[in-house]
């Protein structure tokens, strides 16, 4: 009993961890199902159909491709814009700092449905048609703040003396930025970029307001499928995404750990 009491937090933590992981396990298991009927609720029969024929469900790979293109473009642009803002906030004193902070914070403090619908009203009034461009604009908008947060955290820990040392050793401002500042900020920028990509790739609510019938992103495809019956391929793709995410996060941790070991 005393042993259980002592490790109460550990048990609670592991239970919560299990709670967060159960759906991923289910997704992986059901990607090997050959469902009876159109709803993939019960495990019927083992099958690798979804894995050998991932584009087997009509439209699924088109939507995946669109989501990847939008995700990559949005995350690159949002990372550039967000990194610039993070450097300004982390490195300079300027007037209007609190207004800037507020403007960065606001998109994170606004429900997606409000952002999506308000953008729709703007696009309606400005005559911008719904579609991939509108989606891209929206995704960049809500990703920028998250990039700023990720990069700013890193920039704040950079020692300004390292840049002084570079100047002292004869590096001009451009060389200092490229050889010292940027490599040191890189982990934060990479984290911001990955976060932006995953937010963009996964967004349904805002996208739904700005999509046209011809611009179906992957989450929209899944949403539509959820009403009609989800193809097994969705579960296979979900599993692949989980494994890629796991791989990327593990790689990030390994690189981070190596850096930390050097610091220690």
């Amino acid at each position: 009993m005393a042993w259980i009491k002592r490790h109460l937090i550990t048990f609670a933590a592991l239970a919560v961890l299990a709670y967060t992981l159960v759906p991923n396990v289910i997704v992986a298991v059901f990607s090997f199902n050959d469902p009876k009927g159109k709803f993939n609720y019960t495990f019927n029969e083992f099958s690798t159909d979804a894995w050998t024929n991932p584009c087997g469900a009509p439209g699924i790979c088109d939507s995946l491709g669109l989501s990847l293109r939008i995700g990559i473009t949005a995350s690159i642009i949002a990372t550039i814009l967000g990194t610039m803002i993070a450097f300004a906030l982390g490195r300079y004193r300027f007037r209007g700092r609190s207004a800037t902070n507020l403007l960065i914070f606001m998109p994170m403090a606004t429900p997606e449905v409000v952002m999506g619908s308000s953008l729709l009203t703007l696009f309606l009034m400005a005559g911008i048609p719904a579609g991939p461009v509108a989606i891209l604009i929206a995704h960049i908008m809500f990703c920028v703040s998250f990039v700023v947060v990720a990069v700013k955290a890193r920039v704040a820990t950079l020692d300004p003396r390292l840049e002084e040392a570079a100047a002292d050793l004869g590096a001009n401002p451009t060389q200092t930025f490229l050889r010292v500042t940027l490599p040191l900020a890189a982990p934060g920028i990479a984290a911001g970029g990955l976060l932006a990509f995953s937010l963009s790739f996964d967004d349904y609510i805002i996208t739904n307001f700005n999509a046209s019938p011809s611009s179906i992103t992957f989450p929209m495809y899944v949403w539509g499928a959820a009403q009609r019956g989800v193809p097994v391929q969705v579960y296979a793709i979900g599993t692949v995404m989980f494994l890629i995410a796991l791989g990327v996060v593990v790689a990030g941790q390994v690189v981070g750990a190596r850096r930390n070991r050097q610091v220690a």
Binding site: L21, P23, N24, Y235, G238, M241, F242, A245
Partner: peptide, 10 residues
Amino acid sequence: APFFTSFLIR
């Protein structure tokens, strides 16, 4: 990691 996988699928 789950946070990086699709919200809808989960």
